[in-house]
Structures are given as C-alpha cells and as structure tokens.
C-alpha cells in the first residue's frame, strides 16, 4: 500500500516521536510512505477561524499535490485529518470552490475535490484490519488497560468528515483488543482535550484535559492512547498543569497510536521515542513486561 504521508507540523517538531513510531509501524505492516516536502500546514483549525476560505485553499493545495501523484493521503493527526477532510467538504460549496479554484489556478494547480484522506487508525483497522494486525503481534499487551482518546476532529462533524459513528466509535478499541490489551470505555474518550484554547486560557484548557484523564483513570485505565499529537500535548506535555488544576497527581502515561501498535509488534521504547514523553511510560511498560524500560 502506497500513501502520501502527511505528518503534519507537530510530528515533525515537538512530537517527533509520533513520526518515529509511524515510520516503524508503517514498515512493519507494509505501508509505503511517500513523502512530499511541499505539503504545508493544515491550519490546525486556527486558520479556519481567521479565514475559512484561505484554510480550504491551503488544504486543497495539499490535496492537489497528492492527486497529481495519484495517491490517497495518510494523516497521523486527528486535527490534520479533520482539516483536510473538511476542506473536501467545503470545496463542494460553489462559492468557496470558485474562489479556491481561481487561486489554485494562479499557482498552476487544479484540484478535482476527490483526493481521499485517511488516518492511520482507519488504515490499520479498515484497510489492513485488526485481525491481520493481531497476527503480527509478537508482544501482546496483556494486562494493560488502555483508554482510547479519539480527538474531536477525527469524529466530528460526522456528516462533513464522513467519519465512523462519532457518538459510539469503536475502531480504536478494536485495535487495542487486537494488540492484546484491554480497552477501557469512558465518556471522555470522544470528548475534547482542551488544546484549542491552551494558548487562549490555559487553566480552562488544563481543567478540560484533567477531566478526561481523570475519567479514564476512574474507569481503570493504566494508560491512554491517542491518534492526535495535539491531544498528546494536552494530555502528556501539560499533564502537570492538569494535575495542578485538579490538586492531585494523575501519573497517566499517554501513548501515540503507533507507539502502542509498535510496542505490540516488537519495537523498543527508544525506537518509538517513548523517552521523549513528559509523563513516564515506565509503569505501562512494566505491566506489559518483556520490554526494556529506558534508563
């Protein structure tokens, strides 16, 4: 399977471990990642706030690049996934399409509106299939209870994104089961992580993150896992702030989706960039057993 790899900004910068883990897993399960150094940022929802037409145009340019190469786009970020899919949806509105097509023409590009955008979670569960992943597991994550945290833009608005049932998704939990771990169902799994206002009103954002982590914990989760590096920032990098708002410790390891897959498929903690997390993942690694805990 060949896909146009759209890593998004964060996986190339502070969330580099997501890129590391994605490459490791892609190789293992047979996804060829075709790279495009001319992909731009998806706007992360912020450009959509400031100028929605520009936001559609930036993403239509990205989608046009993949279309020209004859490839579907693979994202590893719920927000990138949402923004690219939203651009496809908005591109069907005649007024927007006219302006965006006109602008693309001026940079010598055309876009049909038909590039398919898919997230790694969907490729693993829909294309490759949880069963096929299960057969590749060499280190079952037995005994580890994992709370999936989907990230809003992978799910909603469901009609625009044509995502799986936004209210009761289960692909991530299916995958967690296939890896040998036990999925934990909790209300917060489809809620917001607070990231969009982390730099607007930090304590509020921290309280929102705290709420979801605490929810996962109270349902017995040993760890959380997310297909979105922005959620990862809220849940992992700012977990100390969430704890501060809450007034007590959470100590919740948070994996990126491909890190969890990589662990079950035999990768080392270093290969997956686990030492880069702010909240240590050691407690989860010990539960799994058979994986060297980084010094």
């Amino acid at each position: 399977m060949r896909l146009a790899y759209y890593p998004g900004c964060v996986a190339q910068e502070s969330g580099k471990e997501l890129d590391l883990a994605t490459r490791w897993v892609a190789k293992k399960v047979g996804i060829e990642l075709v790279e495009f150094p001319n992909f731009s940022c998806c706007g992360s929802g912020f450009i959509d706030e400031a100028n929605p037409t520009l936001n559609v145009a930036l993403n239509a340019r990205n989608l046009a690049i993949a279309e020209k190469a004859g490839l579907d786009v693979l994202t590893v970020c719920s927000t990138c996934q949402g923004m690219l899919a939203l651009a496809n949806s908005r591109y069907t509105e005649p007024k927007i399409r006219e302006r965006v097509e006109g602008a693309l023409a001026q940079i010598g590009m055309t876009y049909s509106g038909r590039t398919h955008v898919t997230h790694l979670l969907q490729v693993l569960t829909d294309e490759i299939g949880a069963e096929a992943i299960r057969r590749q597991v060499v280190r079952p994550l037995t005994g580890l209870k994992v709370g999936a945290f989907y990230g809003c833009h992978l799910l909603r608005p469901a009609d625009r994104l044509r995502s799986e049932s936004a209210e009761e998704p289960h692909s991530f939990e299916d995958l967690i089961s296939a890896l040998g771990a036990t999925p934990v169902f909790y209300r917060g799994r489809v809620m917001c992580c607070g990231f969009p206002i982390l730099f607007v009103k930090e304590p509020t954002a921290n309280r929102i993150a705290a709420r979801q982590i605490e929810d996962a914990k109270s349902h017995g989760a040993d760890a959380m896992a997310t297909p979105c590096p922005l959620c990862h920032i809220s849940l992992d990098a700012y977990q100390n702030k969430a704890e501060h708002e809450l007034g007590h410790a959470l100590d919740m390891p948070v994996f990126h989706l491909p890190q969890l897959v990589g662990l079950a498929l035999g990768a080392t903690a270093e290969e997956l960039g686990l030492p880069r997390h702010l909240v240590s993942t050691d407690s989860a690694l010990r539960k799994i057993g058979g994986v060297a805990v980084p010094a």
């Binding site: 731009s40 706007g43 450009i47 730099f199």
Partner: peptide
Amino acid sequence: TEAGSRHALAFKDNIRERGILNE
C-alpha cells in the same frame, strides 16, 4: 483584541512565513 483572536491571527501569519508551524 483577545488572546483567542490574537492566536488565530498569529497562527495564520506564522504559517505564511515557512508553510510549516514555527512552534
């Protein structure tokens, strides 16, 4: 005028500079 609107505009300007986010 607000942190939120400043952030939205700052993000837009940020991407204009390199096409990728400068965190």
